[in-house]
Nucleic acid binder design. Sequence first.
DNA 1: TTTCTTTATCGTAATATTGCAATATAAAGA
DNA 2: TCTTTATATTGCAATATTACGATAAAGAAA
Lengths: 110, 110
Amino acid sequence: MGVTKTEHYTDKQNSNAILIRALAHPARIAIIEYLIKVDSCICSDIVGELPLSQPTVSQHLKELKTAGIIKGNIEGNSICYCLDEKVMGKLIAYFTSISNQLEKKKNSCC
Amino acid sequence: MGVTKTEHYTDKQNSNAILIRALAHPARIAIIEYLIKVDSCICSDIVGELPLSQPTVSQHLKELKTAGIIKGNIEGNSICYCLDEKVMGKLIAYFTSISNQLEKKKNSCC
DNA sequence: TTTCTTTATCGTAATATTGCAATATAAAGA
DNA sequence: TCTTTATATTGCAATATTACGATAAAGAAA
């Protein structure tokens, strides 16, 4: 097989999995950290920041874009990428809610 | 190819990627949500909760355990799994710090 | 127009992930 | 002991991911 059985999980679980998966690679973590640091940038900057070839960076950017985490605006003949704060906010909200739930029930079994 | 070039990223980026990757599947998200809900449980409960076979669930549990997100204690002839709140805390702290950084710089380009 | 710059896509190789049947292991209970 | 119950491991097939060279596409600059 090798194909996730998404139809058996809730929509929330699937959509959170998509967002989380988009960040499940150090290169993509590095990209969003860089985007936060510089607060917008053009693609060639990111290629220069990462230890990867231009096609590979382009592929990682596409994955982040497909997940909705980043947006890209054409600017002359280059592209300005930046975070979609609304989507990032959803992911952050999910972890915040987990955090709140863990606060409530302090002493677990193990 | 096909192998992540971990040596070029920071330790933080790599360790966060490992934690994030452990949650990058709806089954594993469902597992940790269940663990939070019941606050400890035995493995067979988890198998009953998920639309997956026992070996597959066992494999997902192993991945969560390898990443450090859950702990398993032998209890008679069954195993009690629960969250490692310290490790979960690291992940939550990472997203909290991103959230704080985003708060500071409100207006991005796109 | 021609050339340069920037980004995306294609094709492909190497490796990783997902899932399950079959089987192994190990403690509990008869 | 033998059997049952609970979990892990093995082996395998299907699919997905990671990476890059080659190339395409499209605007900028000459």
